[in-house]
Design a protein around this nucleic acid. Structure first.
Lengths: 108, 108
DNA sequence: ACCGACCCTTTCTTATCAGGCAAGTACTTG
DNA sequence: CAAGTACTTGCCTGATAAGAAAGGGTCGGT
C-alpha cells in the first residue's frame, strides 16, 4: 500500500498518464479533449506532472500555429507501472476472501 | 474511467475496504491498527462507508467490553470489484503501448 | 459513590488541492 | 489593429482528510 503513487491517485492525473502511456507524444488539445478537461485544468496538471518528471513537454509549431506535445517519461512510465501493480496486489488480497481472519472472531 | 468509484479513490478507504474484503467481520481496533489510523479518522471513514452502504457496522460486547465490528456489504464488495476492474482496464490500455496514436503526429 | 480506563464519536480547526473563471501572453490572420 | 488561437497564471471556491481535544456510555477497582 506504501507504493501507491500519490500523484496517480487523482483520477484526472491517472487518466492523463495512462493516456500518454498508450499514445506517446500526444497533443495538448488531444489530451484535453480525451480526458475532458478545461485548458487551465490540464495546463495545471501538466505543470505538476512535468515538475515531477512524469511527463516531458515539447513546444513547437504546426504550420505557424503553436502546439504543445506531451510525452510520458521513463520515470513516469515506471511510476505508473508501480502504482498499477500496487493496486493489483490490493485487488488480489481483496479477492482472497477470508484468507487471514482477524483476531477475536467472537461475533454475537 | 467512468466506473472508478469515488469513495474508493481515497487510499485510506481503499485500504479499509480491501482489508474488509479479505477479512469479514473485523474489529474496529483491528482495522484501525491495520490501516494505521487514529480512532477518530477511522470512525469518520466508517460513518462515510456505512452511510453509503459499503460496510455494515455491528456493535456488541466481548465479555463486558463494548466492541464494534465491520463487515463489507455485498454492495461494497461489488463496488470494489467494479473499481478494481476499471483500474485494470486502465492498466491494460496503458500497457498496449502505442495502440492508438493521437492525430497529428507532426512532432518536430 | 467516585475515578480512571476503555472504546469509540463528535466538534473544531487546519491543510491540501482540484477546478471554474477571468485576465494575460505571444503570435498570427483578416 | 482588432480578433482569434493556444495555452498559462492568479484568484477564489468547495470538498475533504486528518489531528486534537472533548464528550459519552459502560465497567472495574477502592
Amino acid at each position: 500500500m506504501a507504493e501507491l503513487d500519490h500523484l496517480l491517485l487523482d483520477p484526472t492525473r491517472l487518466a492523463i498518464v495512462s493516456l500518454l502511456a498508450a499514445a506517446e507524444w500526444a497533443e495538448f488539445g488531444f489530451v484535453r479533449d480525451s480526458v475532458k478537461l478545461s485548458d487551465s485544468a490540464l495546463s495545471k496538471q501538466v505543470t505538476t506532472l512535468s515538475k515531477k518528471d512524469y511527463v516531458e513537454v515539447r513546444k513547437g509549431y504546426v504550420g505557424k500555429r503553436p502546439r504543445t506535445w506531451l510525452n510520458l517519461t521513463d520515470a513516469g512510465r515506471d511510476n505508473l507501472a508501480g502504482h498499477i501493480s500496487a493496486l493489483q496486489t490490493i485487488a488480489e488480497k481483496a479477492r482472497s476472501d477470508g484468507a487471514q481472519q482477524p483476531r477475536d472472531q467472537t461475533v454475537p
